[in-house]
Simulated scan of single mutants.
Amino acid sequence: MANPLQPVAGAALDPATVRVACSNCNLRELCLPVGLSADEMQRLDHLIATRRRVRRGATLFSAGDPFTSLYAVRSGFFKTTVTTADGRDQVTGFQMAGEILGLDGIVQDKHSCSAVALEDAEVCILPFDQLETLSREFSALQHHVHRIMSREIVRDQGVMLLLGSMRAEERVAAFLLNLVQRLHARGFSRSEMILRMTREEIGSYLGMKLETVSRTFSRFQDEGIIEVKQRYVRILAPQALEAIVNQADTQL
C-alpha cells in the first residue's frame, strides 16, 4: 500500500472518482474516531467515497464558496488565507495529513477563507449533511466531530497568544516546535523537516515581516539551536526552543 503521506505526482484538479476505505487508511486514527464497529466503519467508508487531488498552488475552496463538505487531508500541505480590507492575503493556518479543512463554512453555509495547496495534495471528501446524519446515529463520531471543532478553537487561541504577547524569537520558536511535533505524530522525524511554506508565508501567519523571520532563523542558527539549508530545518537544541517559549509563558 502506498504511503498517503507522500506527495501526489501529476495530480488533476477535478475530483477523482476513486473509492477510498477509511478502514484501510493509516491516517484514520488522526482524523477519524476509533472504536467503531465493523458495521459503523462500513457506513463511514460509504460516506467518504471519493478523493480529490489538488495541484500545488491550486485552490481547494475559496472564500465565499458554498459550504457543502469537510475535507480530510490525506497527503500534502495546505495553507488557509483570508483577504484583508486593503487586499492583502493573510495566512491563518497550515494544515497537513490527518487534519480537517472546511470547518469555517459551517456557520454561514459558505467559506470564510480560502484553502491553497502548498504542494501536490489529496483530500478525502466528507459531505457535511450526510456526516451530520451519521453523527446523530454514532455517538463516537459525533464526539469526534466536536473534538475537531474544539481543537480548532484551541489552535485559534494559540495564534492569538502568538500575535498578542510574544516577541519575534518566541513566535518562531513556538511555530517550529508545534510544526515538528505535528509531523512527528505522523511518523516523521522528531528533529528534521522540510518547510512547505515560504518565509513570507510564515511571517504572514506569525504577524511578522519577512526580514524579521529570516533574521530570527539566522540568529537561531548562529546560536546552534537549528540548522537551516533553504527549506530544510534541523532542530539541534529543542530544549533551547522550549526555554524560549517557556520564558514567554512566565511573562504573561
Rank of each mutant, 00 (worst) to 15 (best):
I235R: 04
S69C: 14
V34G: 11
A16Q: 10
L101F: 06
L134R: 00
V91D: 02
A185Y: 03
E201W: 02
G203I: 04
V54Y: 03
L44M: 08
Y71E: 07
G158L: 02
F61D: 06
I194M: 10
D156C: 15
E169Y: 11
A16D: 07
T198N: 01
Y71F: 15
G76C: 08
A121C: 07
A115I: 10
F138G: 01
G64I: 02
A243K: 09
C22N: 03
M193V: 04
V82D: 10
L131C: 06
R55T: 01
H46A: 09
F175I: 06
V91F: 05
A85V: 06
I244T: 13
Q181E: 14
H143K: 05
A243P: 00
L44H: 00
L176R: 04
V73D: 09
I202P: 02
E201G: 02
I194C: 04
A240I: 01
A49R: 14
D120V: 00
L103Q: 06
V159W: 10
H184N: 13
S23P: 00
K229I: 07
L206V: 03
Q95I: 04
N24A: 14
T212V: 15
P7G: 09
A63V: 05
P127T: 05
R53I: 02
A240N: 03
L5N: 12
F217I: 08
A174E: 08
N3I: 02
E192G: 00
F217V: 04
A9K: 12
N26P: 09
M96F: 13
D104E: 14
M160H: 12
I194F: 03
D86Y: 02
I153Q: 07
Q6A: 09
A21W: 07
R234A: 14
A72T: 05
L236D: 12
I153T: 01
T216I: 02
G35V: 04
K110Q: 14
A58D: 15
V54R: 01
C124R: 08
L195M: 15
A140W: 12
D109S: 15
Y232H: 15
Q239C: 04
H46G: 01
R74I: 06
L134G: 01
Q230E: 13
M41F: 08
I153P: 00
A85R: 05
Y232D: 15
D129T: 13
H184K: 11
D104W: 11
M1I: 06
R52W: 11
A38K: 02
A240Y: 02
A85K: 08
L47R: 04
L60M: 13
S37L: 00
L27Y: 07
E201Q: 09
I226L: 11
L60G: 08
Q247R: 12
P238H: 09
